[in-house]
């Protein structure tokens, strides 16, 4: 499976450098290495979810309890979490760092991912969620750090989109 181990490690290390200590995740192809890293690292807690919206509740609880967290999910998982994001994290002004694999962009061969690829950015913008795309390995650490900084200063959810160029090696 040509998912980039090196770039997954860069992302994981950057999240840890931001003091992220709890990850919630649902498996998705591009996230396999990130999820494994979160599970193997003795300094981080991985919560495997049944559905992504649970992760919003878990991250809200972790935030209230003083632990920084991140959600690892596919864009379709983000869609599944929307009510929790709006009527939980946004209603209560909780910073939420969402790492979202942006499936369905140019280069996507799986027909079932294509509608989600078209809607992701429009939905983020409709919800007023600041986002950035991670497409260059060299910029990963500071883009993740800056996203976390804004989430905490604005007390709002933010999203980082993992792109095909970053995650898929072929």
């Amino acid at each position: 499976m040509p998912v980039s181990v090196a770039n997954s490690q860069l992302i994981f290390d950057a999240l840890k450098a931001c003091d992220v200590r709890l990850f919630s995740a649902l498996p998705e192809t591009w996230l396999v290495h990130l999820v494994r890293m979160a599970e193997d690292d003795p300094e981080t807690i991985l919560v495997r979810l049944a559905k992504e919206e649970e992760g919003v509740g878990i991250s809200m609880g972790a935030y209230f309890a003083g632990v920084k967290s991140a959600m690892l999910m596919q864009n379709h998982g983000f869609f599944a979490a929307i009510n929790g994001i709006i009527s939980g994290a946004q209603l209560y002004r909780v910073p939420l760092l969402m790492i979202i694999s942006h499936r369905g962009e140019f280069g996507e061969r799986d027909p079932w991912q294509t509608e989600g690829g078209i809607s992701t950015i429009r939905v983020l913008e409709a919800m007023g969620i600041p986002y950035d795309r991670l497409d260059d390995p060299a910029s990963i650490p500071h883009r993740i750090a800056k996203a976390q900084t804004l989430a905490e200063s604005a007390l709002r959810p933010v999203a980082l989109l993992l792109t095909r160029d970053l995650m898929w090696e072929e």
């Binding site: 709890l22 807690i45 919560v47 919206e53 649970e54 992760g55 919003v56 509740g57 878990i58 991250s59 809200m60 609880g61 972790a62 935030y63 209230f64 309890a65 003083g66 632990v67 967290s69 009510n83 929790g84 009527s87 939980g88 209603l91």
Partner: peptide, 21 residues
């Protein structure tokens, strides 16, 4: 803490606190 919306997520929020602390 009263989760006045996000229906269904109170147990998940409690889990996040319980695991963190």
């Amino acid at each position: 803490f009263y989760l006045q919306h996000a229906m269904g997520l109170a147990s998940s929020l409690g889990l996040g606190i319980a695991l963190s602390r």
